[in-house]
Amino acid sequence: MTAPTHVRPVTRDDFDNWLPLWDAYNAFYGRSGETALPRDITDLTWSRFFDGYEPMHALVAESDGKLLGLVHYLFHRHTTMAGPICYLQDLYTVETARGKGIGRALINAVYAQAKAANSQRVYWQTHETNHTAMRLYDDVADRSGFVVYRKAL
């Protein structure tokens, strides 16, 4: 029998187990090798999860003492709502755990955190080729219809 999965906030002691998930997430989106995310950015991101002045948070899914997934989210203001809205920025589960409800559990945990913060909305984006994840996303949220534009500066 498989041990149940528990979603919880990261702790400082999780770094060595969180880092391989973070690296795999970044590799999935093409940030590896010569285009790898610089370590100082990883260290900065990690430190923000424990800084009370930062609106950035992290949860992990754990089973049998092993981290199987991560989710990072942050709160920000919005021009058409009084309360903060929640941006789910990063979501990743190890390949062997996919299709077992871990991604859904992580998203639902973000929903719970957002409700507790009086947020009126949780939103995220994914790459248009991420069809596997989109099957889950179509089940747990509505597509906004918005297209993302960006320019590196």
Rank of each mutant, 00 (worst) to 15 (best):
T80I: 14
G145F: 08
W124K: 00
D40R: 11
Y73T: 04
P9W: 10
E34N: 11
G33F: 07
M1T: 12
A82Y: 05
K100F: 03
Y123H: 02
Y73N: 04
A141L: 08
K151T: 12
G65P: 04
A109N: 01
A36I: 10
L19R: 14
L37V: 15
A117S: 02
A114R: 01
D51W: 08
G99Q: 05
C86M: 07
S63K: 08
A114M: 03
G69V: 00
A61E: 00
K100N: 06
I102F: 00
F49V: 10
F50P: 04
Y149G: 03
E54K: 10
L19A: 13
R121V: 02
R39C: 04
D13F: 09
W46P: 01
W18M: 09
K115V: 10
Y87Q: 07
T45A: 14
E62T: 05
Q125I: 11
L68K: 00
G33C: 11
D40S: 08
A141F: 00
A3T: 14
F146E: 13
W18C: 08
G101P: 01
W22K: 07
R39V: 15
L153V: 15
F50V: 09
I85F: 05
E34R: 09
V140M: 04
L37S: 09
E95Q: 12
N118E: 12
R12T: 14
N26K: 11
G65H: 05
T2D: 10
Y149P: 07
Q125D: 06
E95T: 13
Y123Q: 07
A36L: 13
Y73W: 08
Y123F: 14
Y73C: 06
K100L: 10
V7H: 04
Q89H: 14
D64G: 09
G99Y: 04
C86H: 02
W46R: 07
F146Y: 14
F15H: 15
P20T: 09
H76K: 00
V140H: 06
R98Y: 02
A117C: 05
G69Q: 03
A112L: 07
T35Q: 14
N118G: 02
Y111M: 11
L44Y: 12
Y92Q: 06
T132W: 04
L88F: 04
V10K: 04
N118D: 14
D16Y: 07
Y25M: 10
T45Q: 12
Q113F: 03
Y149R: 11
D138K: 01
Q89Y: 12
F28T: 03
R143S: 06
S119I: 03
R39Y: 11
F28N: 09
F75K: 02
K115H: 08
P84H: 07
A24V: 10
E62G: 06
A117P: 01
L136P: 01
N26A: 15
N108W: 08
H57Q: 11
T79L: 13
G145I: 08
K100Q: 14
Q120G: 12
A114I: 03
A82W: 11
T5Q: 09
Y25N: 07
K100H: 10
T5M: 12
G69T: 02
D13V: 13
I102C: 00
R77A: 15
A58R: 01
M56D: 07
P55S: 08
D90H: 02
T80Y: 15
Y29W: 13
L136H: 00
L91N: 05
